[in-house]
Design a protein around this nucleic acid. Structure first.
Lengths: 262, 262
DNA sequence: CCTGATGGTTCCATTATTTGAAACTTAGTC
DNA sequence: GACTAAGTTTCAAATAATGGAACCATCAGG
């Protein structure tokens, strides 16, 4: 049930193919792609050639498989630096991690999904690339809901329209209506919870990072497990997180930051 | 500055524009790009629109500036996982770092340049995204030369043709001829040195990671400074590094194939 | 209030590129 | 050697990209 339907000319189609390879999660053969592709043989073939030529894909000549190219890693380095909150937020997250001793996530919105751009893990040393870049659903994660709650109406609708609500756990808000009520509460409260809505046993408090004008830039969450702590205990850190979010927002604004779109 | 030599149809040109934004290193205005661009106003404009639409770029509506989009971060996560040696090499690099106590780099080749995909720093905790994704010259770094030395002739020539040899330090090999001799020595020896060729005071030993068939997959280096140690002392780790490289190569080769459907 | 810049956006006839069915070339099997 | 599956190339028709020029702000002076 992937969202097919691209309207951006040749470039859009090529990026579609790129996504398809990315989505596979591992090297894929031409014919594998062909089956799932909307494009005819020759067309798909030419796209793959072009993308390979451009270093966006690599072709393993032995196996005849395509995989994402390392050029992306280079681009992402630049992207992460110039357009994610992560480099700027780093010291503040470090501080928050030190003070609270809990796992911290920094996330932004990408195409209606939550994209984690940084992480601090209380226990283990950081595994950056392996966690930054991960995506998750917006409607059932703390950071996701925190951001959704502060999206302008039209953007929110666009995002929700693209969602297919899946009931991950018994606590998941599985309808737009239920979610809307929850978002309102979050807006009033200033922070969002994850009450085991995505994964059983995993809870968190999340706070949005907003510009002075109220535009959503990202969100921070403090995550733990039901075994280690309770939601109430986590909530006691809420003000602290808000403070951190505020500092990040302030610094981001002084550096003038690009907006997220849905 | 770089001589444009792109011709991969529309897609290639669009990716060119993407690189241009990446190269700027900071959010750029339309007109800034227009000056440096080979494309006329309307064309460049449409590319920017398309790329923004696709989430490869973000447009800050207040400033009117473009920056790399977070979609790249998501793609890179996948790229790093599925097509770099990093995830697979991680435990081996950890081990090597523990044993030697020195800084370790894992690099691969990208468009004739060295691309660092992972790093272990003896002293400080890792700063992954901020170091993975970095690029450097091939002809004057340990990892670069280690890889060049094992490239097939035609590939080597392609790469060298693209290089503009810059004399970073007095020790830099600044001509293809001099470099060729060095590469021969490296091939014979099995490992490469960086004798302060890129940065004064920085030295390293590097070893290529090769498939059984002899194809270059990447390289590992062990880096230090002239103040802390000597090249001879570093070289004493050479066999250890080769051993690590061998293990990574073996695992990389065995860890390739199956396919799913769905 | 006008006038001229500057920076960004849209039009649209022309042109070049993409498209994709089909033919072809391997490489692998029985 | 004949059959199949996977990958590659061809080529006329369809389509999308091109870019010169016109257009629409917004702002700064006069």
């Amino acid at each position: 049930m992937g969202a097919e339907g691209n309207q951006d000319g040749t470039v859009g189609k090529a990026l579609d193919v790129l996504d398809m390879v990315a989505g596979a999660g591992k090297p894929v053969r031409f014919s594998d792609l062909l089956v799932h592709s909307a494009y005819p043989k020759a067309t798909l073939y030419r796209f793959l050639q072009t993308l390979t030529n451009q270093g966006m894909l690599t072709l393993d000549p032995d196996r005849g498989t395509y995989a994402l190219g390392v050029r992306l890693v280079r681009l992402a380095h630049a992207a992460w630096q110039q357009s994610s909150l992560a480099p700027l937020a780093r010291p503040y997250l470090d501080e928050l991690a030190r003070e609270t001793g809990e796992t911290i996530h920094l996330a932004q919105m990408d195409m209606g999904q939550v994209l984690y751009v940084d992480k601090r893990n209380a226990a283990k040393p950081v595994e950056m690339f392996s966690s930054a870049g991960k995506v998750g659903p917006a409607y059932c994660t703390g950071v996701g809901k925190a951001m959704l709650a502060h999206l302008p109406d039209d953007a929110l609708n666009t995002v929700l329209a693209r969602q297919s609500f899946h009931r991950f756990t018994p606590h998941t808000y599985a309808t737009p209506a239920a979610l809307m009520t929850e978002l309102q509460a979050i807006r009033a409260r200033g922070h969002a919870f994850d009450r085991e809505e995505h994964e059983p046993g995993i809870i968190c408090v999340a706070v949005p990072i907003l510009t002075r004008a109220g535009r959503v830039m990202g969100a921070i969450s403090l995550t733990s497990t039901t075994q280690r702590t309770t939601l109430t205990a986590l909530e006691s850190h809420a003000d602290q997180i808000k403070h951190t979010a505020g500092k990040i927002a302030a610094e981001a604004e002084s550096w003038r930051f690009p907006e997220q779109n849905g």
